[in-house]
């Protein structure tokens, strides 16, 4: 055992480490860049290690740029999108999974088709509609627009998970006195909780990262989301690269943190033990 090197194992480890490095390097580089003075940025020998003596850059951006407002707006939009998407998707998903009705196939297909329309194409009509509904320049409008995009995909994801809930368990609940809505709330939702967490992450990130709608449907400075704010402060005449990187890092970290929290719930095997497999 000890003398023979396990090649398969070694290669797998190498692959995993390279992938991790590839994924983590940009974040690391953002950190390094944000801590590098602008003058040194284009030096021939780049700094490879972060210079923590310049950590006050992060304080600076909060003072000089409305980063806090941007992040708060992004958080509102992302959380709103997440909650609303899941609330709106769960019943259609249950229906698609459990009921037979006329036009079910067409409905499922239509949900798919909505995924093929690019956001950019919908901006103009949405702008017109939102104008009529007084939703322009509100975070509510932004949440609604994002939710419209996430609901179909989340419906499909949840339908897949609900398909995996044994029908016997639902019937047992019916015998025990549950109504349909009781079944969905006390049996189905707990059993698809891992998928629900995954779907929540997807919706949250969509809201967090979304740019096109946030740029067009909202115009007030005070309602800008981080994606728009960040983009707006690149360019013009000069780009304060280290500030951009610092804000970028701040923008990325909450998302990473949320993902780390959520992924603990995204575990398989919730239905284990219910029925003989």
């Amino acid at each position: 055992m000890r003398s023979t090197f396990n090649w398969g194992h070694g290669l797998r480890l190498l692959a995993i480490v390279s992938l991790l490095a590839a994924a983590a390097f940009p974040i690391y580089w953002m950190l390094v860049t944000s801590l590098t003075p602008s003058a040194d940025l284009f030096a021939d020998t780049p700094h490879m290690l972060p210079d923590f003596s310049r950590i006050e850059v992060f304080e600076e951006v909060f003072r000089e740029i409305p980063v806090a407002t941007w992040l708060a707006n992004s958080a509102i939009v992302a959380t709103g999108t997440m909650v609303l998407s899941i609330a709106l998707a769960i019943l259609p998903a249950y229906t698609l999974s459990r009921f037979r009705f006329r036009g079910k196939g067409a409905l499922g297909f239509t949900l798919f088709v909505t995924q093929m329309l690019p956001e950019a194409m919908l901006v103009v009509p949405l702008y017109a509609i939102f104008g009529q509904l007084a939703l322009l320049d509100t975070l509510t409008g932004l949440i609604l627009a994002n939710t419209a995009f996430t609901v179909p995909v989340i419906t499909w994801i949840l339908k897949g998970a609900i398909d995996g809930v044994p029908i016997d368990v639902e019937e047992a609940a019916r015998i025990d006195g549950c109504s349909r809505i009781d079944i969905v709330l006390s049996v189905v939702i707990p059993l698809v909780a891992p998928t629900l967490a995954a779907a929540g992450v997807i919706a949250f990130f969509h809201g967090w990262n979304e740019y096109v709608f946030a740029q067009t449907l909202v115009s007030s400075q005070s309602l800008q989301t981080a994606s728009v704010g960040l983009a707006g402060f690149v360019g013009e005449l000069s780009t304060p690269v280290h500030s951009v990187m610092a804000v970028g890092l701040i923008y990325t970290l909450p998302a990473v943190a949320l993902y780390l929290v959520a992924q603990r719930y995204v575990v398989a095997g919730m239905t284990a033990g219910s029925v003989k497999g």
């Binding site: 044994p166 016997d168 368990v169 019937e171 047992a172 609940a173 015998i175 049996v187 707990p190 059993l191 909780a193 919730m270 239905t271 284990a272 033990g273 219910s274 029925v275 003989k276």
Partner: peptide, 14 residues
């Protein structure tokens, strides 16, 4: 007022 025992047990796993 009838109880039903399923072949698959159908317990609530959570």
């Amino acid at each position: 007022d009838m109880a039903f025992v399923f072949q698959s047990y159908a317990l609530y796993p959570h």
